[in-house]
Design a protein around this nucleic acid. Structure first.
Lengths: 157, 157
DNA sequence: CTTAAACAATTTAAGTCTAAACGATGCCGA
DNA sequence: TCGGCATCGTTTAGACTTAAATTGTTTAAG
């Protein structure tokens, strides 16, 4: 369902790409989120567990920066994970303002089990792309990310 | 920041593409959402106004389907827009279960003003892509959307 | 020292979203 | 015609998110 907007050729093209990108990523994330719900966790919770699993213990502010979420939100997510005994908080002895977040054995067991299944879903979806397309998509995404950063710097706030 | 996951080459490749896609689209939507906030509306509200502007009056359930949102959420969004006098609800005389949503003159004036500015932001971001890349991105997104649909049908719920 | 500024995490208030249940309406076969 | 089923919009409860204010800690300047 392309746009009905009448503008320059360039505008119409961009708008169509943008709409396709929006639709496809939204349905992708909705789809994956439904799959994760089976295991009793949300996408955000999975994101934290996966990060701790592959990068090791992290401070909350590091997690916030990496996941593009507010610190308040990370507090909320870690609260939930801690209640489920999947992670534990340890106050940093060096700098008592910071808390390090660790996977518990239960948390590690869970992410160890879930991650491969989740990855399988993603691989299955991306299997419609040939290796050239995957490579190009990665390149395009990098360009867009970079562009947004410079755009932000140009006219901040 | 690529993944630290050790798996097959295929898995590592897909995971990297997926991460890049996630990061870039999230920062894209966050960026655009901040821009819209200047005009006192949210992305979701903009989506409804833009849809009505380009497609004409629509029923709430049509809007829900097109925007991939729940019907309850559309009720919520239309409530807000109606309070701001940007849209009005009219019960369908043919089928009194349905309500048609119309832009008010004020709503039309607003979207008429905002849309070109918003489009300019999007065009500016996508200007880092050459026309071949834009074309490819659109093709790739279509493929992914289609893949998700068939995936859903295969193992529903 | 002491105090001000910077920073980490938490709390709070407000907003947005979904799923599920509900009431009203329309459709259709018996 | 009537009774059951489907569909529409709304309501509700609960989850998630951010921004801003708050608390506690560190750092650095006087």
């Amino acid at each position: 369902m392309p746009t009905h907007y009448k503008g320059t050729k360039e505008e119409v093209t961009v708008l169509n790409v943008f709409i396709k990108l929006t639709r496809s990523t939204e349905s992708l994330f909705q789809y994956l989120s439904i799959k994760l719900k089976r295991y009793g966790i949300t996408e955000a919770q999975f994101g934290v567990l996966e990060m701790l699993y592959h990068l090791g213990p992290l401070q909350q502010n590091q997690i916030a920066r990496k996941l593009l979420r507010s610190r308040g939100n990370i507090t909320f997510i870690i609260d939930k994970l801690e209640k489920m005994n999947l992670v534990k908080r340890v106050v940093d002895a060096e700098d008592r303002r910071c808390t390090e977040v660790y996977l518990t054995p239960k948390g590690e067991a869970l992410i160890k089990k879930i991650f491969p299944m989740h990855l399988k879903e993603i691989v299955s979806i991306f299997s419609v792309l040939n290796s050239n397309e995957k490579q190009l998509l990665e390149k395009i995404c990098k360009k867009i990310s970079k562009r947004i950063l410079t755009q932000k710097e140009d006219k901040p706030q």
